[in-house]
Nucleic acid binder design. Structure first.
Lengths: 106, 106
DNA sequence: GTCGTAGTACGATGTTCGTCGTACCACTGG
DNA sequence: CCAGTGGTACGACGAACATCGTACTACGAC
């Protein structure tokens, strides 16, 4: 466990399901994460650099939900993980979805 | 209870929250309902006319979630309820959201 | 090597959720 | 009036979920 060398599992584009994406985005905390990642653009952000009123393990949990739904991509970089929005995949699968949600999310 | 004369509570457009909408749409059964209502267009449909592998009370439950989230509108008509998608409101609040989800929902 | 940092894994806990059955209400047709 | 139909309300129950604390791993700096 805790294997940080191997890449974390991500669904391929065709494995992404709309229900999972919507469920992942339906949580306030996760929506904040996504909003913040969208703001940072394609360089992404170390998970921990996004301030949230939750503990470390809860943050890991939410990032996992987002990753397994296909909303974000995570790659290890040194001791940190760089998270990025999977904008390209989501825009192809559900054009307009992300834009409308991000525009609405205050 | 069970007052069928008074109109059921619906959120106003400004009361609709994106998290509630996403949560409402994240369920497979509710997605089927929404898909079907979209197919029927503005005339809407009696709730019971949509075939689903669930019981009456579960259907009422799901319709309530959708109504309280602001996704559908229900009006009594005789002994039945006519449900319609709140396309206008949703398209104003989150332009592209519904279209992308409906296009994706097989 | 040792310590600190970033993150994951696992187990526990309280809450929400989806489902159902039953009881009930309102309307319609005999 | 009475029976049937379409729908809601309420209570119960198991599953899923969000949260946390603790223990652990991997990497970098000293």
């Amino acid at each position: 466990m805790g294997d940080m060398t191997e890449s974390l599992p991500h669904p391929t584009r065709s494995d992404i399901r709309i229900e999972a994406v919507l469920h992942a985005l339906a949580d306030p905390i996760r929506l904040r994460l996504v909003r913040e990642l969208a703001r940072r653009g394609c360089e992404g952000a170390p998970c921990g650099s996004i301030e949230l009123p939750i503990t470390k393990s809860t943050r890991t949990h939410h990032l996992r939900i987002l990753r397994e739904a296909g909303v974000i991509h995570m790659r290890p970089e040194g001791t940190a993980r760089i998270s990025t929005l999977r904008r390209d995949d989501l825009d192809v699968l559900y054009p307009g979805l992300l834009d409308s949600i991000l525009a609405a999310a205050r």
